[in-house]
Computed example of a mutant assay.
Amino acid sequence: MRPMRRKDRAVTDPAKIRAVLAECQVCRLGLRDGDRVYVVPLNFGLAEREGKQFLYFHGAKEGRKADLIRQGGCACFEMDTGYRLQGGEQACDYTAAFRSIIGEGTVAEVTDPAEKETGLNAVMRQCTGQDRWTYGPAMLDAVGIFRLEVESLTCKEHL
């Protein structure tokens, strides 16, 4: 990933990055579609295993997003929180306060029922703060779960 231009706004403390992730509600997933890019806003959940971070998404098993994920490979993502416009006397004096995360990774469909449950619980934890849910076999079969293995991530804040 390309280095951040505004290093003075970089957040590098892992605990602070996790706190920013916890505040975010929507992740925008970017997928390659031929010579174009398709970006879709999604609810997400974070899971960490063996020193790696994974983002889980849920959605329909059919459609453009699912098709592009099945074609394989790389994806990018963006999420942000705390946006506030800060005024000024002239147009160029305006700025925005925010926290954001941008990253890249490899995305794939999850088919294993146990991992689908892990992914759904991660999404529900992010959305509701709770992660002890029960899913029947029919529900697990019906829902599409997608996992992005985070390969690079930067966090930025301007407060």
Results as ranks from 00 to 15, higher is better:
E104K: 13
G87F: 08
R132F: 04
A96L: 08
D80E: 15
R125K: 15
K116F: 03
D141L: 12
E109A: 13
G144R: 05
P137Y: 05
R147Q: 13
G87T: 12
D93C: 10
Q126L: 00
F77R: 04
G105Y: 06
D80R: 06
E89K: 15
L148G: 08
Q71P: 00
T111I: 10
S100P: 03
L148H: 04
A142F: 04
C155K: 03
G87P: 06
Y83A: 10
G72T: 08
D93F: 07
A142S: 15
E157T: 13
A96S: 14
F98S: 10
T111Y: 06
E115R: 02
Q86D: 11
L153P: 01
G136Y: 07
F146K: 02
T106L: 10
F146W: 11
Y83D: 06
R147F: 08
K116G: 02
G72L: 07
A114G: 03
D93G: 09
F77M: 06
L140K: 12
F77T: 07
G105W: 03
L85D: 05
T118H: 08
F146Q: 03
L148E: 02
I145K: 03
A142L: 09
Q86Y: 11
S100Q: 03
N121G: 01
T95C: 12
G119L: 02
Y94W: 15
P137S: 12
Q126H: 00
M139E: 15
A138S: 15
D80Y: 03
S100K: 03
T118P: 00
Q86L: 15
Y135I: 09
A138H: 13
C92T: 01
L153R: 09
E117M: 12
T106H: 12
F77Y: 13
E78M: 02
E117F: 00
E115Q: 05
R99F: 00
G88V: 08
A75R: 03
D93Q: 11
L140C: 07
P113V: 11
V150I: 15
A142P: 11
F98I: 01
G136T: 14
A91S: 14
T134G: 09
A138N: 13
G87C: 06
A138V: 14
F77I: 07
G82R: 13
Q86I: 15
S152P: 00
K156F: 01
C76L: 02
A122R: 05
P113S: 09
Q71L: 11
L140W: 09
G73W: 05
A75Q: 04
A96W: 08
T111E: 14
T118W: 10
Q90V: 09
E109F: 02
P113Q: 10
C74Q: 14
C74H: 14
D93Y: 06
V123T: 01
A97G: 12
E115V: 01
C127M: 15
T111N: 10
S100W: 00
R84N: 09
R99I: 00
E89N: 14
S100H: 02
P113D: 09
G103M: 04
T118E: 14
A142Y: 03
K156V: 09
A142D: 11
G144I: 05
G73H: 07
V123P: 01
V150P: 09
S152F: 04
Y135L: 08
A122C: 11
